[in-house]
Simulated assay, not measured.
Amino acid sequence: MKSNFVSQINSNEEWISKTQMKKQMNDLQALGMELTRLSSDTLKKMDLPEDLLEAVLTYQKITSNSALKRQAQYIGRLMREIDHTPISHYLARLKGENTAHNAYLQRLENLRSALIADDKALTELISHYPDIEVNNLRTLIRNARKEQAENKPPKAFRALFQLLKSAISEDNIV
């Protein structure tokens, strides 16, 4: 009889104390509160579940303290019902805490600098990414060089970065 009871305990998930459960719930509610600080455009880009998006947008409109507290608890409850890891990753990326994404952006900046400094880098880039818009890329490189030479605002410099970012995915950068 005892061995049967022990095997049932071992087959179940790890036991979680009430304190740990409360901490997890509070963490999820805090994650939900981070969503309330974002603009509605950013929230719509995140592809949140409809009820969570509506709850967050409602929270942003509320002015009463007691109503804010109730809405925060409701957001926390909704967060417990969904997979919160994509939201955590997205918020980390927005905060700049994602080291892999930061490394990707750094490689793009280095690539941009190399393109402006040397024409050989353009040939190498085209060989790695044949689908890239070559004419637009050459124009932006030329304009960025001209901007740097004349100490003008870096409009083409920034546009070059955006072109590279849109053409080269995070998973596909060399």
Rank of each mutant, 00 (worst) to 15 (best):
T42S: 14
A114S: 15
K120S: 13
V56R: 07
Q71G: 00
L68A: 06
P86V: 12
A167L: 05
M33T: 04
P49N: 10
Q148C: 01
Q73P: 00
I132H: 02
F5R: 14
I173P: 04
Y90C: 04
D47C: 09
N65F: 08
S166E: 13
A92G: 15
A167Y: 03
Q73L: 12
D83W: 06
L164W: 02
K120Y: 06
T19N: 12
Q162D: 07
I82V: 12
T36Q: 05
D171T: 11
K165H: 13
Y74W: 05
M21G: 00
V174C: 04
K44R: 15
E34C: 06
A30K: 12
F161T: 01
N102A: 15
H84C: 09
Q24K: 09
M1I: 10
T123R: 14
N4D: 08
M33A: 03
R77W: 02
K152M: 08
A72P: 02
S17G: 13
L108G: 02
I141W: 01
R80K: 11
A159P: 02
E97P: 01
P49E: 12
K2Q: 13
M33I: 05
K155C: 03
A156N: 05
A114V: 10
S66T: 13
A167I: 02
Y74T: 07
S113Y: 04
